[in-house]
Nucleic acid binder design. Structure first.
Lengths: 196, 196
DNA sequence: GCGTCGATGTTGACGGTGACAACATAAGCG
DNA sequence: CGCTTATGTTGTCACCGTCAACATCGACGC
């Protein structure tokens, strides 16, 4: 029973503890939120002793960082929307993908953004995040100062909306999906004006 | 030696432990971030035993909620900008106050938004937050569906920008204050277009 | 004045957690 | 076969949030 993917997986005693821990932690995060995650509970779920995780992650934060890095990979994958001609439509599609990600996996979203996890201390996390961001910041067509600022503005807007939704800080009458979609469309048009 | 402010302060053994704990916690949050705050450390700083806080806060989260509520009071106070005629200028001033708050007290900002602290479990926090939000949502002049959506959009944008800054997720060349101000001005104009 | 009572603070304990150290085991390799 | 090294386990420590039992001090009625 060799591991089907021997890419970098070291299958020793357990099989692939590293992956198992990341999966267990991901589930825990989505169930109870990032703050409630404990190294020992993840180990319990993976069926190993309370100290086994330290063979794969030097610290609790390193485990969380690995999970967050996977989250950024997922986010970047979600940005792989069908190509469209108009820049505005592309921004809109990316914004919807962003919001959909935040609403589908709020715990992961909070981990990736909300919690502290200093990026400079976890280079893999930093790389994954930068890669996802790059898609966003390049979405407003070729370079140029104005378009860069426009993309940043659109990003900030969608990011803020995602946070407000995930943190449940929106009055009920402002939270409906339909209205949100309308808002997003308007956003896109507004940034069209900005860049024009 | 009567307490100068007997408003609701119960000055018993310690003097005003409740206030002292809130202040100690606020300092701790700004120093090490919300996650690193411990009830016992706050008690230590206040010079009382590790269990004294439980006479004033039923739980650790309740203490954090009280600190966060104070934060929202501060934020609302910061929204008390000089009255101006143009709605756009008012939105701009509020946005700048928002960003200034986030940059001046990033730990508090993270506590108020980032961390879990379910609002429904802490009514005082909920009230304080709603009061601050009300200022924002009413900033775009009289009522009306369109203006409400415009205010929400502006709020989301500034909120997102604040989060990106506080979480240190902006490339250095996008973070400078000057450029941010320019951005804010454009935001305001864009939402002027939206509402027009 | 004095005694009771409730609010406040203290001491001690329990289970859970992250982290460290020492030890055990098994895979791979000579 | 025996060494080395990666992996996992057991044991331990300090710290944390929380509960329970006890101590103390101010207020208020008699």
């Amino acid at each position: 029973m060799s591991t089907p993917d021997p890419a970098k997986g070291q299958a020793f005693h357990h099989g692939d503890l590293r992956r198992a821990l990341i999966e267990a932690t991901t589930d825990l995060i989505e169930r109870d939120g990032p703050a409630a995650v404990s190294l020992r509970e993840a180990a319990r779920i993976a069926g190993v002793s309370h100290n086994a995780p330290y063979r794969h992650f030097p610290t609790r934060d390193a485990l969380l960082a690995a999970v967050a890095a996977h989250g950024f990979d997922e986010l970047k994958a979600a940005f792989d929307v069908p190509a469209v001609a108009a820049v505005d439509d592309r921004l809109l599609a990316l914004g919807e993908a962003y919001l959909h990600f935040a609403q589908t996996k709020p715990g992961l979203f909070k981990l990736m953004f909300g919690s502290g996890l200093d990026r400079k201390g976890h280079p893999d996390l930093d790389r994954a995040a930068q890669a996802a961001y790059a898609v966003l910041l390049n979405a407003s067509g070729p370079q140029g100062q104005a378009s860069r600022e426009g993309a940043l503005g659109a990003w900030a807007l969608v990011h803020g909306l995602a946070h407000l939704i995930v943190d449940d800080q929106l009055a009920p009458d402002l939270r409906e999906d339909a209205r949100k979609a309308v808002l997003l469309e308007k956003i896109s048009k507004a940034y069209g004006h900005l860049r024009g």
